[in-house]
Nucleic acid binder design. Structure first.
Lengths: 219, 219
DNA sequence: GCTTTATCGGAGCAGTTAACTCCGAAAAGC
DNA sequence: GCTTTTCGGAGTTAACTGCTCCGATAAAGC
């Protein structure tokens, strides 16, 4: 994922060796473990579980990340950036529909929605706000392109897509087969396609203000 | 809901009065509150919250239901029976598709899926097994009928429907607008309809054994 | 090899939470 | 009035978990 600049020596910028290399490896393993554990069990999962999954002592984890919140913030930002990359890839695809579908699948596979329950419980950093806005913008383009092409139903908005990803990212039973998730997602994606006689979606489209407000800590 | 035989005097079988009538009312209010609270916040919600929602003291709650597990079991069984009734209503409907869609919507509205995380954590009583099997049988008929009529895609199984209900029943953010849920559900239901050129669902259909095994406590 | 120094890892602490108990208060029945 | 039944919530207790702290350990320097 991305850079991990802090795992290299500030001055030499060369990879470290020996014990320092271990520290660097641990750093990566912790983030991956965090994604796995928090993605599966939700933010209620214990820090101890993350450390165990990473094969690392609790002490080592806390040396990198000052608190559980800190770890969650890092994970959150990393996931958002990953989602932005996925959106860029999708825009680069020739087929608008396949691009959009691929984006949604990628987000679900990465359990990006599993972090949604964090909304309002951790401080949202400016970087996160930025990433969030950038993501919405990119996905907005994806949606508009697919709608122009006539493959996506016209009454679907960016936020519907966001909520859909969040819904599918919600942590389910521990041993939930990913096959089931995949089937259900295929069904949902099928429901997004434009079909001639379909009745319009019920109710007003989701409001951006509502979506954003959830992430305000003063709420 | 349903009978509540235990709120009547065993011998006279007539409604009680005064303080005993209050006890009876409390019993109902507690179950309704439990559905509301556990449905919204999941099984992790506190017993105190249920009591407060019911407008009843904790003591009164514990006099009826010996433990939180006991309360959850009662709620679980009641929900299953409600789901069975919904399925019967759906079978009685003329239009197979509208019946099925209505059934799914009813289950989601009642947050039946919110109880799914209980799987394996509470003892599954024989009555619950029975209700579960009966429900699957009825929904199986619903599915078969809609498929014969050509409105439901043929590669969807009963268990896909069950998982879908469970997915949408999962508790989301506290103040999640039901409008959003409704929109997403409409999308998913649209994806269930048979369309000519649709590609088949990925992976093997869900296995009944897997579904059932989750509810075994020895596991 | 020996010392120094950075890192690891988990035992334990302290704060919190939530299921459950228990008993005084209040209402019903006689 | 007196007894009995039921209510209701404050308090108890046990489990849990985020986090600290320090001994062990391994690399780097001499």
């Amino acid at each position: 994922m991305n850079e991990h600049t802090h795992i290299r020596d500030e001055r030499s910028d060369r990879p470290r060796r020996g014990r320092q290399a271990e520290a660097a490896r641990n750093d990566i393993r912790v983030l991956e473990a965090a994604r796995e554990v928090f993605g599966r069990h939700g933010a209620a999962a214990t820090v101890a579980a993350v450390a165990e999954q990473a094969g690392v002592g609790i002490g080592s984890l806390y040396r990198r990340y000052g608190s559980k919140d800190d770890l969650l913030r890092h994970l959150c930002l990393a996931s958002m950036q990953q989602s932005i990359e996925a959106a860029q890839d999708a825009l680069a695809a020739d087929d608008a529909w396949l691009g959009l579908a691929g984006y949604v699948r990628a987000c679900v596979a990465n359990r990006i929605g599993a972090l949604a329950p964090l909304a309002g419980t951790i401080e949202t950093t400016p970087e996160m706000w930025e990433a969030s806005a950038r993501g919405r913008q990119l996905v907005g383009e994806l949606v508009a392109r697919a709608q122009r092409g006539g493959t996506l139903r016209t009454d679907v908005t960016v936020l519907d897509i966001a909520w859909l990803i969040e819904l599918f990212g919600r942590s389910g039973p521990e041993h939930e087969d990913d096959g089931v998730r995949s089937r259900l997602l295929s069904i949902a994606l099928g429901g997004l396609r434009a079909v001639p006689g379909a009745e319009p979606l019920p109710g007003p489209p989701p409001d951006v203000a509502d979506y954003v407000r959830r992430w305000s800590t003063d709420g």
